[in-house]
């Protein structure tokens, strides 16, 4: 029975990773850059909800909404100020290092505003837990909501990308920026939209993550951010179903690693997964093969 319990908490954690990984994978697919600051957008989302709900005492739904709006704007601002000027830079390292700078900036601004002490995040979800098999299997409300929210978001996102004009524009830009522009697609707006969606998902992920693991510090986002990137690579970067599968699998691997191997080794196992995937199947589970052109 404990196996099932671990499996469910793994899927729940994996759902959060999947939401974050979606942001990575969409941005990577379109802007061809690793948005290192993505993890810290999660932290900003969680802190916004914390401020609105715990400090100002407003209802949770408003907190989540505020987080989503703020993170969307933040994501677009970061793209506009820090990444867009470097899009045509001669070295691919330039934008990566800038992203690291943005990540640091967000962490340290949060550190100045909220201080380094961990805040306890009160869960925004008031859903009762589910007891199965005479109470042997306990599924918390957070777990259920996390998994459901993740599933809904994935389905909506897939529909958005495959059925709407804006979604098709995103696909076109990720295939070939130049050709998309010639077909009358506004490339800048499409990239901005991608960052907006990715950051909004990060805000939701932040709220869900902190509802399940209720400690909040300025560094809360960085480790889940990196792990979600591992998930995105695992599933095949640029692929949305890949990010989902990669996230869920990574969550399960992490929880199982914690439970059955060693709690201190969980991070090591996650990173080992990344290394193994990149060395043996760099395109990930569902990634496309990209041939290098001379």
């Amino acid at each position: 029975m404990s196996f099932l319990q671990y499996l469910i908490s793994g899927i729940s954690l994996g759902s959060v990773y999947a939401l974050i990984a979606l942001g990575y994978t969409m941005v990577y697919g379109i802007a061809k850059m690793l948005n290192f600051a993505h993890g810290d957008v999660i932290m900003v989302g969680a802190f916004t909800t914390y401020t609105v709900c715990s400090t100002m005492g407003l209802p949770p739904l408003l907190g989540v909404l505020a987080a989503v709006v703020l993170c969307t704007l933040l994501g677009m601002l970061i793209e506009k100020v820090a990444y867009k000027p470097l899009r045509k830079a001669s070295s691919p390292l330039a934008v990566l290092i800038t992203a690291i700078g943005v990540s640091y900036l967000l962490q340290n601004v949060a550190l100045l505003i909220f201080g380094g002490n961990a805040k306890s995040f009160t869960s925004v979800l008031s859903v009762g837990s589910l007891k199965l098999f005479d109470g042997q299997l306990l599924i918390t409300g957070e777990t259920i909501v996390t998994i459901l929210v993740c599933l809904v978001i994935i389905v909506v996102l897939m529909l958005f990308i495959n059925k709407t004009k804006a979604g098709q524009a995103m696909l076109a830009v990720s295939e070939d920026k130049g050709a998309a522009q010639l077909m009358g697609i506004n490339v800048n707006a499409t990239i901005a939209l991608t960052f907006a969606i990715g950051s909004a998902l990060a805000a939701v992920a932040g709220v869900l993550l902190c509802s399940a693991y209720p400690t909040l510090t300025p560094y809360t986002g960085s480790m889940p951010g990196i792990k979600a990137f591992v998930a995105a690579v695992f599933g095949g970067i640029g692929s949305i179903p890949g990010a989902f599968i990669g996230g869920i699998l990574l969550g399960i691997i992490e929880i199982f690693g914690k439970a059955y191997i060693s709690s201190q080794m969980a991070d090591t196992i996650v990173f080992a997964v990344l290394i193994i995937v990149l060395l043996f199947k760099p395109t990930g589970l569902l990634g496309k093969n990209i041939q290098e052109k001379v």
Partner: peptide, 24 residues
């Protein structure tokens, strides 16, 4: 000292933009 890492971050972003942005 409290602002050390904040200054580092800003310096990092500005340096990259200044040195690598085609327009710059």
């Amino acid at each position: 000292n409290d602002y050390r890492m904040l200054i580092y971050a800003v310096v990092l972003i500005l340096m990259m933009l200044f040195n690598w942005a085609p327009r710059c």
